[in-house]
Simulated assay, not measured.
Amino acid sequence: MSATAIRCREYAASQGYEVAATFPDDVSGGGDFMDRPGMVASLAFLRAQPDENFVVIFDNLKRFSRDTEFHIKLRRTLSDVGATPECLNFRFEDTPEGEFIETIMAAKGELERRQNRRQVIQKMSARVKQGYYLFAPV
């Protein structure tokens, strides 16, 4: 079991929640959440049980989404299926101030993701110029 799964299970136990299912998701939080197999599976699980109200636990807000637009869409989608997100290191609040802070945190995650992408491209380009081959031979 991963450290993330352990942390999430410990959180669930501390809140008195029964774990109904787990959906590991190792895909980056950038872009459309429907491209993430774990998210697709979790949403299918939630939609298959429309009369239940589940709590969906994320270990880190950056794992929720690193794209502001899709963060907001994912929050809306979870709400539409009757699920409440909870996070180990962030408190979701349905207040104007809470939603503002959440949007800022989502935008910060997107900024970091995009800056990291730029840095990787710059460094890879510099390595190519130095004559290094960047990919494993096929």
Rank of each mutant, 00 (worst) to 15 (best):
N116K: 13
L88P: 01
A83F: 11
S79H: 13
T22Q: 15
P85H: 02
I104H: 13
D25M: 08
F90G: 05
F100Q: 00
R47S: 03
E18A: 14
L134N: 12
A21P: 10
D94Y: 15
K62M: 08
A107V: 00
E110F: 09
D94W: 15
G29I: 02
F90I: 00
G31E: 01
Q122A: 12
D26F: 12
R118L: 07
V56K: 13
G82K: 00
E110I: 00
Y133W: 07
Y133C: 09
H71K: 13
C87L: 00
V128C: 07
L43Y: 04
G38K: 03
Y132Q: 06
A106P: 08
A44Y: 09
Q15L: 07
A106E: 03
R127Y: 11
L88H: 00
R47G: 02
A106W: 06
L46S: 03
G82L: 02
E69I: 10
D26K: 14
R63G: 11
V120H: 03
Q15T: 04
D32E: 01
C8T: 02
A107S: 05
V40I: 15
L88G: 03
P24N: 10
A21R: 11
I72T: 09
G131Y: 13
T68D: 08
V56I: 15
P37S: 11
L43T: 04
R117L: 13
A12I: 04
L134A: 07
E99W: 02
F135I: 12
Q15N: 07
K73T: 08
G131T: 15
V19N: 04
T4M: 03
A126S: 13
L46P: 06
Q115F: 02
F64Y: 14
A5L: 15
G82E: 06
N60S: 13
D80W: 10
S2C: 14
G38Y: 05
M39P: 05
Q122G: 09
F23T: 07
T95Q: 00
T103I: 10
L74Y: 03
D25W: 05
R117P: 01
E10T: 15
L61A: 09
E86Q: 12
F100R: 02
A12V: 04
G16I: 02
E112D: 15
F33A: 05
E112C: 05
L43C: 04
I6R: 08
A21I: 07
I72N: 10
P96Y: 03
R47N: 05
A83D: 05
F23P: 07
M105H: 06
N60P: 08
R91A: 03
K129N: 08
A21S: 12
V56C: 12
E102V: 02
P24M: 14
L74C: 06
E52C: 04
E112I: 01
D25T: 10
S14N: 11
Q15V: 05
K73E: 14
F58K: 01
I121D: 08
A13I: 09
A44S: 11
L43V: 11
